[in-house]
Structure formats: structure tokens, C-alpha cells
Design a protein around this nucleic acid. Structure first.
Lengths: 260, 260
DNA sequence: TTACGCTGCA
DNA sequence: TGCAGCGTAA
């Protein structure tokens, strides 16, 4: 059987918020490693990669690898029935076609369980190569979300340019053009507010705002976000989930000649 | 003449919120006892019973019994013109076809009055027998509201099952099934948070979510709600209105054979 | 037009 | 953390 317990359902709620805009359905792969999800978004443009490590759970048991296909709208309805401080336990029998979510209030006077049918989803196994990147930018996740939101007012695309001077986000359109420049901060007191730029080689790439804005739905999961870029390979937007894992989004750059 | 005064109109606003989803028009019976209302809801499925006792008013005078038929949409518009801490006075002449609402600010620097036409409504006098119930459940009213809201995600009906183990609320539908179990709490410190179950005989009954959700509009009136159930008789959902009276909702159970 | 859910504020 | 007001969706 499979059983995984988290003492606070809040994290699970945030994880769901972070993927449900991009995915209608999702296959969660459960194994000794933890719970993993890799999937192209609905429009097959971006890619979501999620890992919740087994050691991050308060209890974790997985006798046999299993894949749980879930409709995320249904899952969202169920998770919303939990209070943020409820303990949540996910259970499934081996080869079962249902999964059970159990929520327990801190005082143990309210116990609810929700059973959901699993789906058989086409498994698209995606090889994601681990590569070295020309530029890595760490910054406050709310800052990144704000930049994406602000720039999407100006056009459909954001150009991200990373040089030794810092990182510049740009957009242009009918109403005008916008540039937002960030420089590395030397604020070591508040690590969560710092901007850290690791540039091996300057890179300038352009991305569709729409997807970046979907990625920023993960903002509540982590105070910092890391952007990794190299020429001609997908951008990686990574949010660490404290003590539990991470969620990564991959988005291929727009081809520059297409930019009209 | 008839005259009734409350030092805070907030209660009156909440009472109105608690009935206007169910009733388009309402006949308020005024007598020495106080202001009473008994009516089937618009769809003639559930029943609302309201009493605002005369001794709960800050001033109450009723020379002659009278019935005031009001359109609740109009009444709502008028009551919304009062600030929550305004003193409200309801006045009607004997045999008058209008009622007057007077709102006074605490500092007496603003006095408004609103006159509304009364309606002649068909009086359906409903005998509600006082019966003993197999199970009475007292619980926080917000908890009950939350349970009704959560379970209505899963289906049109909620099954309430009261046994010596506690009370269980269940629903099932396309996306899955849900069970919420509450056990009696022994938390005597915070009476308003406690769950108290008085079970003479176990009962399991099924009700339409839609009406339960309408009943929970009374939640702001009281921190606790009481559910009373016996086999084959209507559920009673009761909210005490502190120092003033109560509102009770009656809803017949669904016939079990109908459950497909 | 009404009811519900959400976000922002206290 | 809880409420109230706003915006949306039926």
C-alpha cells in the first residue's frame, strides 16, 4: 500500500495552486523517492516537474511503485475541504483505482476522508537533461511575480537579459516599452530578500509572459525563485518547497526572428 | 399601535439575511409574545420558524395583534440603510397598511425613517408539533456551515448519521465520496467550540444540500447550532438569537429509496 | 439579479 | 486569523 502524511495541508494546497493552471490532469508517480510529477502543460508548451521527497513527509510508506492519475479540478475541491492546519494523509492500495485523502483537525475531534477515482492517463515520460547553465539568478519570488505581472501589461513577451551588470527584464508593445533592471544585492542579513546572479556567460532570451505568469502561481511555496538560462535551451524556473522538495517549470525561449 | 425598538440594528440585518434566501415575502405576526414568523420556503420544501421575543426588545408595545406582510427584498433594501449600531424602531398603526422603520445614530445626530407598504399575504398557519428527538447535536455554527459547503461539492445530498461514536456527515458523487466525522468534545473551557451529542437512539437521515446551505445563512446569528433528528421526521436546525429568540429551520429527509 | 468565492484589511 | 467588501459567475 501507499501512505503519505503531512502535518499541515497548507503546503499541499499551495502545490496544487502551483500546477492547476497549467495542467488539467496529472500523473503522480509514487516510489521510495517520494511523489513525482512531470508533465507538459495543457498546450504542450511548458513543462512542470515536481518532486515531494519521501523524507519530507511525516510518514511515508510506498510498498510498490504506483502512478496515480488525478483530475486536478476534483483534487482541488477535495483539498479545499481541509483546514490549513489539518494533518493530511494520502492513502492508496496497490493496484487500487481510488485514492483516499484523510484530514484530521489538530484536536482530533474532526476527521474527514475523501475518496477519489483515479484516472488512467497517457504516460509521457520526459527526459530532462541536467545541464550547466550560463546564468543563474536567485531573487525573491514575490519580486519575480511582480515583474512578470507588470511587464505582461506591455506585451506578450518578456526579454530576460543577464550580463555582468545584472539582469534586465524588458517588454514592449502598443502602450510603450518597459525595462526592469536588478543588480546583485550584497544584503547578507536577509537572505530571502537578496538577488544573487551567477553569470558564466551573458545570455539574452525571450519568453511568453503567459507561461511565466502561470509559473508564479508557485510563489507562496518559497520566498526565493531561481531562474536558469543558457542560449537556445529552455529557461528553468525553480521554487524550493522547504524541507519537502521543489517545483520546476521549463519554458523554451521564443525564436528571436519571430518577435514581430 | 405597534412599536418595537432594538438598540442595534445588526441583529435585525442578520435575521433578514437568514430568511431572505428562502422566502420572497413573509408575514410577521406581532403580539404580546413578540414578533413571529412561520412559513414554508418558496419551493414549499423547508419551513422557517422565527421568534423575536417581546422581552428581547429595548421597547415593545403591541396594543392589538397584527400581521405585517412584507416583501423581503424591499425590507432588505431598507434595513441596509441602517448602520449596524443604529437604534431601530419599527412602528405601525393598528389596521395600517404601512410600516415605518426609524434609524437613529448613537449620537442622535442622524435620524432616518423609511415607510414601506405592507402586503396582504395568504396566511398558511402551520402546526409544528413539539416532539422529542432521537438525536440532538450541538456544534459550532461555522463548523456546520463549513461541512455543508464542503460536502455540497460532492453531491446534492448529505447523509447525517448519529451514533454513539459521534456524528458523521457523508456525500458522494461523480468526483468521489466524502465523510466528515465529529466526536463529542470534552472542551468545557470554550463552550462555543464544543460539540455535544445527545443520542437516545442512532439515526441516519439524508437531506438536500441546497436547503442546508440556505439554513447556514443564519450562522452570524449564533456561535452554536443545534441539529435535532428522529427517523422519518423533519430535521430541525436551530440557531439561538442571543437574548432575543431563535430561528428554526425544518427539512424533511429524503426517502432513502430515492437515493439513486 | 442574486449568491458565492476570493482577496485585502483589521 | 477572522471578517467585510468586492467581483464574478450562475
Amino acid at each position: 500500500m501507499f501512505e503519505a502524511r503531512l502535518v499541515a495541508s497548507a503546503t499541499l494546497k499551495k502545490v496544487l495552486e502551483a500546477i492547476k493552471d497549467l495542467l488539467t490532469d496529472a500523473s503522480f508517480d509514487c516510489s521510495d523517492v517520494g511523489i513525482q510529477l512531470q508533465a507538459m502543460d495543457n498546450s504542450h508548451v511548458s513543462l512542470v516537474s515536481l518532486i515531494l521527497r519521501s523524507d519530507g513527509f511525516d510518514k511515508y510508506r510506498c510498498d510498490r511503485n504506483l502512478t496515480m492519475g488525478m483530475n486536478l479540478a476534483s483534487l482541488t475541491k477535495i483539498i479545499k475541504c481541509a483546514n490549513n492546519d489539518d494533518t493530511v494523509t494520502i492513502k492508496a492500495q496497490d493496484d487500487a483505482d481510488t485514492v483516499t485523502f484523510m484530514f484530521e483537525s489538530k484536536k482530533h475531534d474532526k476527521i474527514s476522508d475523501y475518496e477519489m477515482k483515479l484516472m488512467n492517463l497517457d504516460q509521457e515520460h520526459l527526459g530532462i537533461p541536467e545541464t550547466a547553465f550560463s546564468c543563474k539568478i536567485k531573487m525573491p519570488s514575490v519580486e519575480f511575480a511582480r515583474i512578470c505581472r507588470d511587464l505582461s501589461q506591455f506585451g506578450d513577451s518578456v526579454m530576460i537579459s543577464c550580463t555582468k551588470e545584472g539582469v534586465k527584464f524588458s517588454a514592449a508593445g502598443d502602450i510603450g516599452s518597459a525595462n526592469i533592471k536588478l543588480t546583485q544585492t550584497t544584503n547578507f542579513d536577509k537572505e530571502e530578500e537578496s538577488v544573487i546572479i551567477d553569470m558564466q556567460e551573458p545570455v539574452t532570451l525571450t519568453f511568453a509572459c503567459q507561461y511565466l505568469n502561470s509559473f508564479t502561481k508557485a510563489t507562496p511555496l518559497s520566498v526565493q525563485v531561481q531562474l536558469s538560462m543558457s542560449a537556445n535551451v529552455p529557461l528553468v524556473v525553480e521554487y524550493q518547497i522547504p524541507d519537502l522538495g521543489h517545483i520546476r517549470y521549463y519554458l523554451a525561449p521564443k525564436i528571436e526572428d519571430d518577435e514581430n
